Simulated assay, not measured.
Amino acid sequence: MNDIIIILLAGFTTGITTVLFGFGGGFIVVPFVYHIVAAEPGLSQHAMHIAVATSTAVMIFNAGWATIQSGCAGRLNAAVLFPLVWFIAAGAVGGSLLAGLLKDEVVRVLFILYLIITLADCVMRKGFISRPQARRLSGTTVSFGGIFIGVVAALLGVGGSVMTVPLLRRHGYEMRDCVSAANPLSIPVAVCGAVTYTFTGWHAIPATGYSGFISLKILVLLTASGFCGMLFTRRCIPAVPDVLHARVYVALLLAVLLAMAV
């Protein structure tokens, strides 16, 4: 019962972060699912893969719904999304396949290292908290950067927002525009990742209620509570000032890092 409550709260929080920060699942879902699954007999050796795979599946629904809402509100910029989304999708296929070849603990360590690097970049390098002058993404950034984002995001189950938001922020976009773009850019990662984790984890989990590495029970609970969290955010949380938005983004990354490290 306690595990269900924790999952529902995590899902509700994920719904809030999807709308406010473009985090469709990964940074909130992965730590909670990891600790819950790791405590179950026979599943501990697959805990990180299950957490990442389930997080990836949750992102399909969260990022998809948020994208529809942003599109209806006219907040999606096609010049930013394309062709970046195609390169991210290509990288996501490779990242998902690579994750199936790595041991569970290796993925966990990579997740923690990735958080540390991202936090250091946001805090120590100029151009994130204080928005610089707007400039276009170069062809190299779109192509090679997009593939890199797709590989890392699918490998660690974090969507792409943790890289696309800082990337767009450093190119002069407001946080709300970064977040609006982050959700659709996370969809190809989520779809490619979920399909790959389903096939690579087929018959790998010695328990019922799994589609490959994806826990169907946790997926349903997270998706339902996440939808409630998104509705709550849209209706009850006012617009956040740009600089405060960036600072809270960094604080959230730090909180998830501590959760995974402990």
Rank of each mutant, 00 (worst) to 15 (best):
P41G: 08
T13L: 15
G64F: 02
F82C: 08
R131L: 10
G212H: 03
P83T: 10
V250G: 03
P166L: 03
L97A: 05
H35T: 13
H245K: 05
G42W: 06
P41Q: 11
R136S: 12
A204G: 03
V107T: 10
E40W: 14
Q133F: 07
A38K: 13
R108E: 11
P241N: 14
F21S: 13
V250A: 04
A194P: 00
I149K: 01
G193Q: 02
T141N: 07
G64K: 01
I147V: 14
R247N: 08
D242E: 12
F199Q: 09
W65T: 13
A10W: 07
V142M: 10
F87T: 01
V58F: 10
A47I: 05
I50Q: 04
V179Y: 05
I116C: 10
L253C: 13
F12Q: 04
A255Y: 11
E40G: 09
V58L: 13
N2C: 10
Y173C: 09
P188R: 02
I68Q: 09
R235Y: 09
S96H: 02
V165E: 04
T67W: 02
I237R: 04
G25T: 00
Y173F: 15
R75H: 12
L137F: 11
T223A: 09
V106A: 13
I4T: 15
L253I: 15
V107G: 01
L113V: 14
A120R: 12
P31G: 06
H35V: 12
V93I: 15
S180V: 06
I6A: 14
G15Q: 00
A57D: 04
S161T: 06
N183E: 03
L8M: 14
A99R: 04
V37F: 11
V151Y: 00
V142N: 06
V189G: 07
M260S: 11
P166Y: 05
L119Y: 07
L156W: 03
G100D: 08
L254Y: 13
N183G: 01
T56G: 03
P241D: 14
I16D: 07
I147W: 05
Y210Q: 05
T141P: 08
I68W: 11
G159H: 00
G22T: 02
G209N: 07
N77G: 03
R131C: 12
G209R: 07
L137C: 08
G146M: 00
P41N: 11
P188S: 08
A239S: 11
P241K: 08
A57I: 01
L252Y: 12
V220M: 12
I116R: 02
L258W: 07
V152F: 10
M175L: 12
L222I: 09
R125N: 15
T54N: 03
T196P: 02
R247T: 08
G64S: 01
G64C: 02
V109F: 12
L115F: 11
W86G: 04
F148C: 01
V158D: 03
A153L: 04
V250L: 03
L110Y: 05
V80W: 00
T67L: 00
V158F: 01
M230K: 10
I147Y: 01
A194R: 02
F148R: 03
S211N: 10
I4V: 13
D3C: 10
D104Q: 09
I237A: 00
F23I: 14
I187A: 01
F21W: 02
V107S: 05
M48P: 03
T141R: 08
A10P: 00
L258F: 10
